[in-house]
Design a protein around this nucleic acid. Structure first.
Lengths: 110, 110
DNA sequence: GTCTGATACATAAAAATCTTATGTATTGAG
DNA sequence: CTCAATACATAAGATTTTTATGTATCAGAC
């Protein structure tokens, strides 16, 4: 991503939406999914991702399930009912945000 | 604005674009212009705006001109050559960002 | 067999930016 | 004359992100 500062504030929205669409996922998987969806343009850093996931869990948006794969540990995250509702509203907010910014920056409606 | 955290990282882009389109402007005028363009959805706060303008001036993106209107002081900001180029590239970056986010969030191409 | 890159988690210090609060002062409307 | 709007500014605190570091497993190349 050329301008990482634009990404600020979108991390939660991305996590919510990806989890909503793909169900139960673990942290590393989320980074790969986002990298794939963005065709390499967005690389979530671990230092931002894990604290965000922990915060969301503490806020009741996510639940976790730890699974042992061989000797390796994976922590799966899934949305709670509240989290699913939040995914919906956050995405809607983002769409509104884009529309507003399009007006302010006078971009083509394309 | 419903979700102020989405605005993070877009302040400079907004300032650059508004100044590019409207030429010389003063701080308060920028807040009013943005409020108008966004139909009331974006209210730049002074605590964010003025430090941002000062930073941009220090970075050589803007030049200032202080004008006395009666007993009141107005500080006009204008883009330097560098600033104009930056306005262009930042807006382009934002358009890219929107496209990428649309893919990640799987939004309609509308 | 061992080295490297990918997988997989985590935290902490530092940087950056924004919100909220506060301060000063002018001007116009009622 | 008082209040809302105009006009600037800074500082403390909150929040989030980057950067750096740490631990450990696993697969494939050599």
């Amino acid at each position: 991503m050329h301008s990482p500062e634009l990404l600020k504030g979108t991390l939660q929205t991305i996590i919510l939406k990806v989890l909503k669409d793909h169900g139960k996922m673990y942290g590393y998987e989320i980074t790969q999914r986002v990298k794939h969806l963005s065709e390499g343009r967005i690389s979530l850093t671990e230092g931002a991702l894990y604290p965000a996931l922990h915060r969301m869990e503490a806020d009741g948006i996510l639940t976790t399930e730890t699974v042992n794969i061989g000797k390796r540990v994976r922590k799966y995250y899934a949305l709670t009912t509240e989290g699913k509702a939040m995914a919906k509203s956050r995405v809607a907010e983002f769409v509104d945000f884009i529309d507003t910014m399009r007006q302010v920056l006078q971009l083509k409606t394309s």
